[in-house]
Amino acid sequence: MEEKNLIYRGKSKDVYDITEGLYAGKYRLVFTDRATGYMENGRPVFDPGYDIVVGEIPGKGAIACRFATHFFKLLKSKGIPSHYIDSINENEMIVEPAIPLSMTSESPEFPGSAPLLNLEFTWRNNATGSFWRRYPFVKPCKNLHKVVEAWTKGDSDILITLEALEETGAMSKDEIALSVELVKKIAQIVSEEFTSKDLHVIDGKFELGRLKYGDGKIVIIDEISPDVLRVCKGYAPDESGNCTVYNQCTLTNYSQGNRTIKNKNQVSASDFINIFL
């Protein structure tokens, strides 16, 4: 594949423009083996909850593509719009061209100004990860009822409030409401699919975009893969949906101003992938 057709290179995927053939005018989404996580004792620890690429996992791209195909087809059967068209081989997907939710810099003449390249929406069934690190007064694994947050994407992801999205002009109030509702609908479908396999989704993240052609409808783009989900086993909720085994599962630490939280019952991507594939 020629680099000249490269449109975007992300943390785990590359996007190419298709200029000829059956799918001319569409995009080719290539799932790579790049993986995010953090370094511990000089070694990479792969965790989709982090946004720094720390290495590669052989075969990860092909698995992610098959996994995403499963869920995009499931969403289609539920009437949920997406950019998905077809999967043409083990790690390549054909998608409708879409424009990430973005905004140009209003004052590029000022040093340090930068555009909003795209947004990512996280949704959380339970309080853990960066949510708990930001709000440590919350009980770990408390039921959050799929609370939705928006993040600006870049070398590091930055939380932006929904009110700020409206006031900056990045999105209208109606677009924000539609996006939150769409994310929650997809989160519910994904969560139910995992529940049917005796697994529980802790949290996830989706990217939305406007279809490039037609009415510019906002749909889910990018992927639904092991890269964007954290999953656990042994989830035992009480009547309020709070996990009752968090005392045995959750490990936290506070050192030199940094908080960490880990979940012993978190299932690695390689373990839950086989259930679907």
Rank of each mutant, 00 (worst) to 15 (best):
D227N: 14
D203P: 02
Y235E: 07
T168P: 00
A236H: 04
K205D: 11
E207H: 12
D222A: 12
C232I: 13
Q188I: 15
C232E: 12
D222S: 11
K217H: 15
D215S: 13
S191W: 10
S225K: 05
V180T: 14
K212I: 00
D238F: 05
D238Y: 08
T195N: 15
N247G: 15
I220P: 01
I220T: 10
F194H: 07
S179D: 07
T244F: 06
K212G: 07
V219Q: 00
V231K: 00
K217P: 08
E167G: 06
D222V: 13
T195H: 15
L208F: 02
E193S: 13
I221R: 01
C243G: 01
A177M: 05
L178G: 06
I176W: 11
G234N: 08
L208H: 08
I224N: 02
A187W: 09
S172D: 08
D215G: 02
I224H: 08
P237K: 09
V180L: 14
T195Q: 15
G234E: 02
P237W: 06
Q248E: 15
K197E: 07
I189S: 08
C232G: 09
S179T: 12
T195M: 13
G241A: 09
I218F: 01
C243L: 03
S225Y: 06
T168I: 10
D222T: 12
E175C: 04
I218S: 06
G241S: 10
S240C: 10
Y213V: 13
Q248G: 12
K184G: 14
I220E: 03
D215M: 07
E223H: 10
Q188R: 15
D227S: 07
V231I: 12
E175V: 08
K217Q: 15
G241Y: 06
I220L: 14
F206A: 04
L208G: 03
D174A: 11
